[in-house]
Every structure is written in C-alpha cells, then in structure tokens.
Amino acid sequence: MDAVFELFIAPFLAFGFMQKALLGALMLSVSATPVGVFLMLRRMSLTGDAMAHAILPGAAAGFLLFGLELVPMTIGGLVVGVVVALGAGVVSRLTVQKEDASMAAFYLIALSVGVVMVSMRGSSIDLMHVLFGTVLALNSEALTLIGGVAALTLATLVVFWRALVAECLDPVFLRSVSKLGSPAHFIFLGLVVLNLVAGFQALGTLLSVGLMVLPAAAARFWAHRVETMCIVAAGLGMASSVAGLLLSYHLSLPSGPAIILSAGVAYAVSVLVGRRGVIFTLRPRTSHRTA
C-alpha cells in the first residue's frame, strides 16, 4: 500500500509544480480531446499538426519582443494561428485548391518564418523550449489561460454541437437548411488554434497537438457514437497526463514528451485490443447469426 502511495500519490502531494502540471494537463485533456475527435471525424488530424507548426512564428514573435513571457507569446500564437486557419479556409472555399494543400502551404511559410525568427535572437535552448514546452514550469498565469480556454471550448462545443455533427455527417444537407455550415467550420478551426495555443506552454508547439489527436484516434476503436468517443478520449487524455507526469518524475524524462508518449501507448493498445481494433477485426468467426 505504501509503495502504491509512494509511486502514484506522493509525487503530486509533495511538490507544487507537480500539482500545477497535473491540473494543467487534466484541463487540457478535457478541452483538447473532443476537439481532436471532430478533427479526426473530419479527416483533419494532420491539419491539427499543421496548425501546431503554424502558431510557432506568432509565439516566436512574442518571444523575440518580450522574452519568455506567457501573454505576448500566447497572443502571437493566436493571431498567426487564426490567420493561417482563415487563409487556408478561404483559399479552399473560394478557389479550386483543397484545404490540405492550402493548409500545407500556409503552415510551411509560417513555420519557416518562425524558425528564422527564433534563430535571430535566441539560443537553441530557447528554441527547444518553444518547440517542446515545459509542463513542470506552469505558473498560475498559464493555468488561468488553460482553464479559460477549456471553459470556452466546452461551452462552444455544447452550443454548436448539432452544427458540428451535421457539418461532418452531411454538409450539403446542413447548407440546405441553415447558413451555419461555414461559420461552424471556422469556429471549429478557432477552437483548434485556441487549444493548441493553450497547450504549447505545457507541451510545446510541436507536441500540443499530440494530446488533441492521439486520445481521439484511440477512442475511435472503443466507441460507436460521437458523444461516447469524446468522453473516452477525454478519459484517455487524463490517464495519459497522470501516467506521463509520473514517468517523468520517477525516470527523469522530459514531461511533455512523456505525456504524449503515454497517449501513444494508449493508442497502440487501442489499435490492438479495442472493440473495433485489429485483433477483434481479424479474429476468425466460427459461428454466425441467422440474420
């Protein structure tokens, strides 16, 4: 019993930075994973990745001007993320080009600008910090930001749920009964940007998308409905956060990657043994129903 306490509970009781890291990661899990579920259902998981790269120059601009400060880096990331999302969305909706290509073009431009900006001033350690984050250094300012983003995300999802589902399932039908199709799409992209920006303090710009996409992708193997998929994804995200922080504490691993790696393990296990996973799909059937 003592060993269990020492392994799983004590680290969080003993250190304030662990408590803050846990709180931040759990709030991110609840907020980002349902967004990830919709990203996946719209076959936009890689768009999340592109967006994560795209917010780098914004964060870098904030970093160049004000140093390693939360508010300017967050605002910078938000602005550039929204510009890239809107730009790619507008190009795909108004021209012949599909969103995958326009998004790739916009994020590549943004990423190269970002790396150039960081290298102009900072050392490579600073670049590492922006790219990979420091969940163990979350201060109350960052926690407030993550909490605010989580509350806004959940409220927006509740309000626009029907439109988001309809826009995924039958976008043409939605356009025939409502003008909400395009606004719902852009509001959704806004949520993606918000959650990536909230996540990059903790997990870095490159890995913040991991907590969004991996639990959602894993949940696909367990759930049949969008609602349950979101709940399973949030649960997996929270479990990965706890596991990652403990791994990081006990084995001295970098905390952000440890969280995402835990989510990766959850994904791999789900692929194999999930209700709709590989083993279940491939198992030989010796009996069948009459109808």
Binding site: A166, L169, S178, R220
Partner: peptide, 14 residues
C-alpha cells in the same frame, strides 16, 4: 461517421 439511424433522421428536425 459514427452516427445511428436516429441521429441521421433527426437532422430533419433542424
């Protein structure tokens, strides 16, 4: 898309 028949039909309530 992970929807049931009732989810699809209830879009008609929009």
């Amino acid at each position: 898309f992970p929807a049931r028949v009732v989810d699809l039909v209830s879009l008609g309530l929009w």
